[in-house]
Design a binder for these strands. Structure first.
Length: 803
RNA sequence: GCGAGUAUGGCGGAAUUGGCAGACGCGCUAGACUUAGGAUCUAGUGUCCCAGACGUGCAGGUUCAACUCCUGUUACUCGCACCA
């Protein structure tokens, strides 16, 4: 074959020119929406990992198009965000220009790989026509009371000079640069995501996400069921605690409240050891700057003197402490301490020499607490718990909770780990938040007609020293009139987080050129929802949570047709370096897809990445294996020389052909891409062994291989005079022809294979038994023994049990 | 610590429902054709004390039959980590 790259270019141009893969809204074919996460167009170009998932979904898209579906397989760019901004700061160019340059590179690479994207729907989150609607949707959040400003201690990265979400600051370090995160008070836009905790949980039932994906969502939302209990303070006043273990309430020997919470501030006037308490609060604020894991060793804290609290169930007065293991922003910011049955409380009690009372008769607690996971579900009985003594723990749990409610001591509540979404970023390269601060009216939303609020051109992209967005320096832009009263006012200078634009982009693909709405209801109803969504495991949890929250909100205000707009979510494994480690420049194990395409062709790379292993698991790169795939494609090409002048399909090949079609259809829709390739190899080997093959035989294997290797198959197909595969239909298999008439099956004696017999499709059980018993080697192994039972599994195996 | 996932030849990995473990490919060995081969073809390739036995991280169990189901256990990977 002539130059592979030339042929590939020829077909890529053909698809472009004919708009072969453009989806049509409202078309009467069955719609099916396949989505891959749109990439962040970084300066380093497309990664071989992108190639893996794009090829997999591309293959599915190409097969289903041939099966008569109206396939939406779009591509776009998630181009706002820190890396582009950092790059711009370094090189003194506008991030917009840098992004445009990178998009050009990415798009060129994608085209060279022959992905069947509908390029007619391409957009970038940085296009004003797109972010206009991101801003518009923010205004809807605001107008429905879902966006609010709050001054809260936030995670602050001193290097990036930016506020980070809890998620971005996971583990106490900045996700981007690794710097220790500090705490800083800042006024931030927030979205009330916590209002949606329960809906985001129950909504999962209306999705087909993989179990591990659902579990990620569930863990992130972090629901825990328990009781909130009111605690009186001696001498007046009260506070509440949250517990998931009401059964241990008689074991309370002290309370602990959060040093960073609001409660201690309220109690301050009554505190006798103010100095000591204030000192501890200060220390805690500093501690968050340091490596937290180091501090996990001990349970620090101080007693709040002058404050005693009363256990509501038995009137017992116990001391109250400050302790940094209690978090100010979870639950009520205070806990009841039961050192006998909670390990943290136990450690705290040891450290501060406090009383330990066992309330469940479950063994020795002198070394460590016996926690819920250990005592629940066993026949342990209650002790030291007044009228509940002698009751089984599992029963006491419910009984005590009910008693608390009845007597008005508390109520049953659910708590969620998920917090509200911190929506402000002090950066330049993001969607401006369309809010105006008026000295008379306060925060006023921009008029919707005035959107988009464009990002101005600036010279400097660095955040200001005090952490304001660089936009704050552009007075022309900042100063404006209040839309409500006309008074001089100032714009919000914070921008939106990177997650904003990616939370609804899949809706825009359904109707990308709409100038009146973010997407019309008709278009969204037509496409229904994303049928098949593929992305990396890394950000599945966060991205899906934000996107689902966003969509649920839009649903609640009547703007999208479903509460969940994503049906199936699957995730692929990484492509590792040949050293089995994550590809990185520093390790020198990076494979550039361009080099591979140039040397072996796009088809070889595509086939190899599908064949390399289980799609959902990480797989190391192997250039040797890649060459094997090249050999396979060469073999396909060579088979053309075996074409005879007969019509139709070769009789000898028909069963295998039908079986192969069936298997490929199954595997393609079940992420079994590697076995799609292996069954094609088996078919090719069978063709190779045959004396000769017909033109139709050849056309068939080209069609089956086409979704994965679209260029070479089109070229060879053209050479034998067929119309382009991309305009043809997918072959239909005949179930009856997938079954062999004659088959070889194994004969076991006591579970060990001793012979094989040939059976025909219409042999009955007795005949099969007879054939099995006639085998010489079988005779040898049953000789002198009593045949106890003969098990015949039709078409599979015979097992003779002897004693 | 909690949650999830994974474990099969020298390597990547097959084995929809329990039914001949190692498909398919890589690598390797020997040979053929060759000036040459990252080309092609042929044969072979789990282990061992090779008429047979043993083999899917380890130890048990269920079954005529277990990579597959059950109980326990180990190692690694990922996610969350003082969440009351």
């Amino acid at each position: 074959m002539e130059n592979v790259n030339k042929i590939e270019k020829k077909w890529q141009d053909y698809w472009d020119k004919n708009k072969t893969f453009w989806a049509k809204n409202g078309d009467k074919r069955k719609p099916y929406y396949i989505l891959v996460e749109f990439p962040y167009p970084s300066g380093s170009g497309l990664h071989v990992g992108h190639v893996r998932s794009y090829t997999a979904q591309d293959a599915l898209a190409r097969m289903m198009r041939m099966q008569g579906y109206n396939i939406l397989y779009p591509m776009g760019w998630d181009a706002f965000g820190a890396p582009a901004e950092q790059y711009a700061i370094k090189n003194h160019i506008h991030p917009r220009d840098a992004v445009q340059e990178n998009i050009k590179v990415f798009k060129g690479q994608m085209k060279s790989l022959g992905f069947s994207f509908d390029w007619g729907r391409e957009f970038s989150t940085t296009d004003p026509e797109y972010y206009k609607w991101t801003q518009w949707q923010f205004l809807q959040f605001y107008k429905h009371g879902m966006a609010y400003k709050d001054t809260i201690p936030v995670n602050w990265c001193p290097t990036c000079k930016s506020v980070l979400s809890n998620e971005d600051a996971a583990g106490g370090v900045c996700e981007r640069c690794g710097t220790q995160v500090e705490q800083k008070e800042k006024s931030q836009w927030m979205l009330r995501m916590s209002d949606y905790s329960e809906d985001l949980l129950t909504g999962l039932d209306d999705t087909n996400f993989a179990d591990r994906v659902k579990l990620g969502q569930i863990n992130w939302i972090g629901k825990s069921q328990g009781c909130e209990i009111d605690v009186e303070i001696v001498g007046g006043g009260k506070f509440s605690v949250f517990t998931t273990c009401p059964e241990t309430i008689y074991g309370i020997t002290f309370f602990v409240i959060a040093p960073d919470g609001k409660l201690i501030k309220e109690l301050m006037p009554r505190v006798e050891n103010k100095k000591e308490v204030e000192q501890y609060i200060k220390e805690t604020a500093l501690k968050s700057n340091m490596d937290r894991t180091e501090l996990n060793k001990g349970k620090t804290g101080v007693e709040i003197k002058g404050i005693k609290a009363i256990n509501p169930v038995n009137g017992k007065e116990v001391p109250v402490f400050l302790g940094d293991f209690v978090l100010g922003d979870y639950g009520t910011g205070a806990v009841m301490a039961v050192p006998s049955h909670d390990q943290r409380d136990f450690e705290y009690a040891q450290e501060h020499h406090l009383e330990i009372i066992k309330v469940i008769d479950c063994g020795d607690i002198s070394e460590h607490a016996i926690e819920k996971t250990e005592y629940m579900g066993h026949d342990y009985k209650m002790i030291n718990s007044e009228e509940f003594n002698g009751m089984l723990v599992d029963d006491a749990r419910e009984a005590i909770a009910n008693m608390l409610v009845e007597k008005g001591y508390g109520r049953k509540v659910n708590n969620y780990k998920m917090r509200d979404w911190i929506f402000s970023r002090q950066r330049f390269w993001g969607e401006p938040i369309p809010m105006i601060n008026c000295p008379e009216c306060g925060w006023v939303p921009m008029d919707e007609e005035d959107l988009p609020l464009l990002l101005p051109d600036v010279v400097e992209y660095e955040p200001t020293e005090d952490g304001e967005s660089p936009l704050a320096n552009i007075t022309d832009w900042v100063n404006c009139k209040c839309p409500k009263c006309g008074h001089d006012a100032k714009r919000e200078t914070d921008t939106m987080p990177n997650w904003a634009g990616s939370s609804w982009y899949f809706l825009r693909f359904m109707d990308p050129h709409n100038t009146k709405e973010f997407a019309s209801m008709d278009a969204m109803k037509y496409w229904n929802r994303v049928d098949w969504y593929n992305g990396g495991m890394e950000h599945t949890a966060r991205h899906l949570l934000y996107a689902r929250f966003w969509v649920q909100f839009l649903y609640n205000i009547g703007l999208v047709p479903h509460k969940e707009m994503i049906w199936t979510r699957v995730s692929h494994g990484m492509v590792l370096g040949s050293d089995n480690q994550k590809m990185s420049k520093s390790k020198g194990n990076v494979i550039n897809p361009d080099d591979i395409v140039k040397e072996y062709g796009a088809d070889t790379l595509r086939v190899y990445e599908m064949f390399m292993g289980d799609y959902q698991m990480d797989a190391p790169w192997s250039t040797d294996s890649l060459r094997g795939c090249k050999r396979f494609l060469d073999k396909i090409e060579r088979l053309k020389d075996k074409i005879n002048d007969q019509e139709g399909y070769s009789e000898k090949l028909e069963v295998l052909q039908n079986k192969t079609i069936k298997k490929i259809e199954y595997d393609m829709t079940h992420m079994g891409y590697n076995t799609v390739i292996s069954s094609l190899m088996i078919l090719a080997n069978a063709y190779d062994e045959a004396e000769s093959i017909t033109k139709d035989d050849y056309h068939l294997i080209l069609t089956l291989l086409n979704p994965i290797a679209p260029h070479i198959t089109e070229e060879l197909n053209e050479q034998i005079g067929f119309k382009p595969i991309c305009e043809d239909t997918w072959p239909v298999y005949d179930e009856e022809k997938t079954i062999e008439n004659v088959k070889e099956i194994a004969v076991q004696v006591n579970g060990k294979v001793r012979a094989t017999i040939e059976i025909s499709i219409d042999d009955d059980e007795d005949l099969i038994k007879k054939k099995a018993l006639e085998c010489e080697n079988v005779q040898k192994h049953i000789d002198g023994k009593e045949v106890f039972k003969i098990i015949v599994i039709k078409g599979k195996i015979v097992n003779i049990v002897v004693k």
